[in-house]
Lab assay of single mutants.
Amino acid sequence: TEEYTYTDKEKADRAAKEWANRGYTVTVTQDGPTYRVRVG
């Protein structure tokens, strides 16, 4: 499991979509002003 942190919702959504397109399980959680994209 890897985790990426973004401050921009659009970038987080785009990253999540790209990982999902590659067949990974993706979870996006909002943590205050940041968005965490957990992959795998």
Rank of each mutant, 00 (worst) to 15 (best):
T1D: 11
T1Q: 11
T1S: 11
T1R: 09
T1M: 13
E2P: 08
E3F: 09
E3V: 13
E3A: 05
E3I: 12
E3T: 11
E3N: 06
Y4M: 05
Y4V: 05
Y4A: 03
Y4N: 03
Y4S: 03
Y4E: 05
T5R: 08
T5E: 10
T5K: 07
T5L: 14
Y6M: 02
Y6P: 00
Y6F: 14
T7D: 13
T7L: 12
T7A: 10
T7Y: 14
T7K: 09
D8V: 06
D8R: 05
D8I: 06
D8A: 05
D8H: 05
D8K: 05
D8W: 03
D8Q: 06
K9G: 06
K9V: 06
K9Q: 07
E10N: 10
E10M: 09
E10W: 11
E10V: 10
E10S: 10
E10Y: 09
E10P: 05
E10R: 08
E10D: 12
K11M: 14
K11Q: 14
K11R: 10
K11A: 15
K11Y: 08
K11L: 14
K11N: 10
A12L: 03
A12G: 03
A12N: 00
D13G: 06
D13R: 07
D13H: 12
D13N: 10
D13C: 12
R14A: 14
R14H: 11
R14Q: 14
R14T: 11
R14P: 01
R14N: 11
A15S: 06
A15N: 04
A15Y: 06
A15T: 06
A15I: 08
A15D: 07
A15V: 11
A16Q: 05
A16N: 02
A16F: 05
A16I: 06
A16W: 04
A16R: 04
K17R: 13
K17A: 13
K17T: 11
K17Q: 13
K17F: 11
K17G: 07
K17W: 11
E18Q: 09
E18G: 06
E18A: 09
E18M: 12
E18P: 00
E18K: 08
W19V: 02
W19L: 06
W19Y: 06
W19Q: 02
W19K: 02
W19C: 05
W19E: 01
W19H: 03
W19D: 01
W19M: 05
A20E: 13
A20G: 07
A20S: 10
A20Y: 08
A20Q: 12
N21I: 10
N21G: 10
N21P: 00
N21S: 14
R22S: 06
R22A: 10
R22K: 14
R22M: 13
R22V: 05
R22N: 07
R22P: 01
R22Q: 11
R22W: 07
R22L: 13
R22E: 06
R22G: 05
G23L: 02
G23A: 02
G23E: 02
G23Y: 02
Y24I: 04
Y24W: 06
Y24F: 12
T25M: 10
T25F: 12
T25L: 11
T25V: 12
T25K: 11
T25S: 10
T25N: 10
T25H: 12
T25W: 11
T25A: 10
T25Y: 12
V26C: 03
V26A: 06
V26R: 00
V26D: 00
V26I: 04
T27P: 00
T27V: 11
T27H: 09
T27S: 10
T27E: 10
T27M: 09
T27R: 06
V28G: 01
V28A: 02
V28R: 03
V28Y: 04
V28S: 03
V28K: 02
V28F: 05
V28M: 07
V28E: 02
T29W: 14
T29Q: 08
T29E: 11
T29L: 12
T29Y: 14
T29K: 06
T29H: 10
T29I: 14
T29F: 13
T29A: 07
T29N: 05
Q30Y: 07
Q30K: 12
Q30G: 05
Q30D: 05
Q30I: 10
Q30A: 09
Q30E: 08
D31W: 06
D31V: 13
D31A: 06
D31Q: 08
D31L: 08
D31H: 09
D31T: 07
D31F: 07
G32D: 02
G32V: 01
G32W: 03
G32S: 02
G32Y: 03
P33V: 09
P33I: 09
P33K: 11
P33F: 11
P33G: 14
P33R: 08
T34K: 08
T34N: 12
T34H: 12
T34L: 15
T34I: 15
Y35R: 01
Y35F: 11
Y35T: 04
Y35I: 07
Y35G: 00
R36W: 06
R36T: 14
R36D: 02
V37S: 00
V37E: 00
V37W: 00
V37I: 08
V37H: 01
R38F: 13
R38I: 15
R38D: 06
R38Q: 14
R38N: 12
R38P: 01
V39S: 01
V39C: 05
V39Y: 03
V39I: 09
V39P: 03
V39H: 02
G40E: 15
G40T: 15
G40Y: 15
G40V: 15
G40I: 14
G40Q: 15
G40S: 15
